[in-house]
Design a protein around this nucleic acid. Structure first.
Lengths: 210, 210
DNA sequence: TAGATTGTTAATCGATTAACAATC
DNA sequence: TAGATTGTTAATCGATTAACAATC
């Protein structure tokens, strides 16, 4: 269906394309050229065409791209035509916030359970879910065909759980813990390092004012 | 002090170096060579030396790098030797979670106030702060020398606030809203697009299983 | 002094941009 | 058919890696 080994930098641009195409759809726009899209997105038309062509041609010479079609195709590339079952591990502030964030469901990501190892949190309610102890993790993952684990607990807790998640053959980990995870290649990891991001902002501010 | 126009890709590696050096410090390690660090971090020693040398030489031939010194220097490059005053705009789940996340303070980022435009949230308490109406934004920013605004509200709300933030001459915006912000060059923006990140994970999972 | 390891230059690799033939 | 715009190849640019002289 598409080139193997799409570079990380192309992958990271796909959600942005998807977002802009969604906006265009909402505006009722039917077709768009790489030139017009490039102006909106502040990237070169050349890059847009190159990016899309990693996945096969979605456009038509002389016409451009059909907005709805391109939107759907990029959605498929991103796997948004499939359902995903998530669990959140770590029922602290961030875990609760993510559990309550409804927009993920619109994209097919369903939060099925929430876990913690803190006695004080187990049994409490988050959204419509009861926080479960991490001991129940293994059975829950199997019984509910969970494919993504969201890690929203401190470093130590996160690394300690990796073995269990590997055993359960989870497909992906969305890691908010402030550490790099050491997992086999079969498990895909996407890191969200909030502190790193804030530091980058700090750098830019001070770099700019020099 | 350092090259102008450090590339984005180098900047994005700095917080990770900082993190690993912090760990080395905690382990009581005094010196480290680029070779040893490269093994830990899974990058080439060459890249490490190139990256550091954008900011001047921190090492010594035959010795390597002094962990404490290098840690401090990278901290300074990232602006972590300075204090930052933040406000959170958007007191929903995510805004509250960030307000309660204590680790930012360890790095010099202090949350000074929290705002929202929802009647139902204004006046409620988050941590030790009372949620204020966005109308008070302008005065508060000036009186409390706020330099960073954290945007944790929906798209529409976020774009509507940009003019105010520009007027207030805020230095940086940490943007969690699911949109690109159109601001003058004088304001630095760092985006955290959670949905994009989750989509990237989804792509990797499906790409891998093909 | 000899060994180790940096700082830095040169070589390679990959990503972006430009150009244009193909084609709707 | 003529005009527009893609898909794709070629040229450029930038980032990574390799190599090694400088030096602690």
């Amino acid at each position: 269906m598409h080139d193997k080994n799409i570079s990380q930098v192309v992958i990271s641009r796909l959600p942005r394309y998807f977002r802009y195409l969604g906006d265009l759809k909402d505006e009722g726009k039917e077709r768009i050229s790489s030139g017009e899209l490039s102006k909106r997105m502040n990237v070169t038309a050349s890059q847009i065409r190159q990016d899309f062509n990693h996945f096969g041609g979605f456009g038509q010479q002389g016409y451009g791209y059909n907005v709805n079609y391109l939107y759907d195709e990029i959605g498929k590339i991103l796997g948004l035509d499939k359902r995903h079952n998530l669990i959140i591990i770590g029922a602290g502030n961030l875990g609760q916030a993510l559990a309550n964030y409804m927009n993920f469901e619109r994209r097919g990501f369903y939060v099925r359970g929430i876990f913690d190892n803190k006695e004080s949190l187990i049994g409490t309610k988050v959204r419509d879910m009861t926080v479960m102890p991490v001991e129940d993790l293994k059975d829950f993952i199997k019984e509910n065909s969970i494919d993504i684990a969201v890690l929203t607990l401190p470093k130590q807790g996160a690394t300690g759980l990796i073995d269990t998640l590997v055993e359960c053959k989870i497909s992906g980990i969305w890691n908010f813990a402030h550490c790099d995870l050491d997992v086999p290649d079969s498990i895909l990891v996407e890191n969200v390092h909030l502190t790193d991001s804030l530091m980058k902002l700090s750098f830019k501010i001070h770099d700019h004012n020099e």
